[in-house]
Design a protein around this nucleic acid. Structure first.
Lengths: 193, 193
DNA sequence: ACCGTAGGCCAACGCCTGTTGACATACAAC
DNA sequence: GTTGTATGTCAACAGGCGTTGGCCTACGGT
């Protein structure tokens, strides 16, 4: 009898699982949750649709696995408080261009309740936590994080989803110079400044 | 033989057409383009699905009719330049709460290319035009309008689509006091202020 | 009163979807 | 070498989808 002794040792199917995940992220990112079909994802990964079911249980399970996302927010305790906005915008722009998972999540969150729930989770677990490390009145932390999210997600939405021409054409430095002051004020400023 | 003499006179089916449109906007707003089925819309309007096809040709045609949207941007030529941001945020918040068409458009634009195209059209035809009336360097008009769109749509996305708790809980006055200065700077300020 | 037409319903088509179970093959342990 | 398990394919199911065409009904001009 074959017994798996070490559950962390690589499985023979790991390359297949990875291929499925990669194809799934691409399809979810470009097509959204409902238009991204399991059949298309399986075709991209060059395997049978039933394999997706075996390894991820269902379409929802596949999405949950594909939309696992770590913002990798930088440690800001050693950044001058006046540069929070600048550092954050640069970080997000770099994070998005290197990983299409967030675009997938953004597209899916518009129509899929589970994806929206995951987005709220990422927001609560990662962004609020990071904002809290800045110091400042804890009572306003969630609000400041929400405002930051509104501008950051609006940037992603107009640039990567709707593709408004001016937002696509702006290069990184111009974006930073416009958006960083906004985040800076949301993080450290007062309303109606 | 019955000949329609005046094409503007009310048709007997106008109430049905209106019921279909109303149901369609609701479904598109709450479910997105692909989950909003013609069958469900027809059931809401208490008619047969085939009527939708007769009056609007196809699902795409129905969406095009349901997503007709006028931002009704106010005339800002008689508003003090320092209050542009304030007036704009209030206008958008009021416009969204009174009409779910924009939520429908926002949700659909994430997954439906036609809806994204319509969103770009509204942006180009209405927002850029309004921003242009402010005066200012015409070369930067589109860019400023794009930045305004990024914050406004990010606000709508986090508040009405993803429903981030802090963004849902903020009342109108708090939102205005935080967001208005952002729009104000995008409209009349310089980068890296 | 007649009759053409617009309004409306019903049943069905063809297609695509997520999902399932039966079957083949290749690897790894004994 | 044998055997059990993991990997993978194939074919099919049941349901939902947009869409179509035929049929009945009721209105409104003449």
């Amino acid at each position: 009898m074959t017994v798996r002794v070490d559950s962390t040792q690589p499985r023979r199917s790991d390359v297949t699982r990875a291929a499925i995940l990669r194809a799934a992220r691409e399809r979810f990112a470009s097509d959204g949750y409902e238009r991204a079909t399991i059949r298309a994802i399986a075709a991209d990964a060059r395997i049978d649709p039933s394999m997706v079911m075996r390894y991820y249980g269902s379409k929802e399970g596949l999405f949950a696995a594909a939309a696992e996302f770590d913002l990798r927010l930088p440690d800001l305790t050693h950044v001058p408080p006046g540069r929070f906005g600048d550092v954050l915008v640069r970080h997000f722009l770099a994070r998005w261009d290197g990983d299409e998972t967030l675009v997938a999540l953004l597209r899916a969150a518009s129509t899929n309740p589970g994806a929206a729930e995951r987005m709220r989770g990422i927001f609560a677990d990662q962004l609020i936590t990071a904002v809290a490390t800045f110091g400042g009145d804890p009572a306003t932390t969630a609000r400041r994080a929400g405002l930051v999210a509104s501008q950051i997600l609006g940037l992603a939405f107009t640039r990567y989803i709707v593709r408004l021409p001016p937002m696509v054409e702006l290069d990184q430095e111009e974006l930073v110079s416009w958006i960083a002051p906004t985040l800076q004020r949301y993080l450290t400023g007062q309303p109606e400044s």
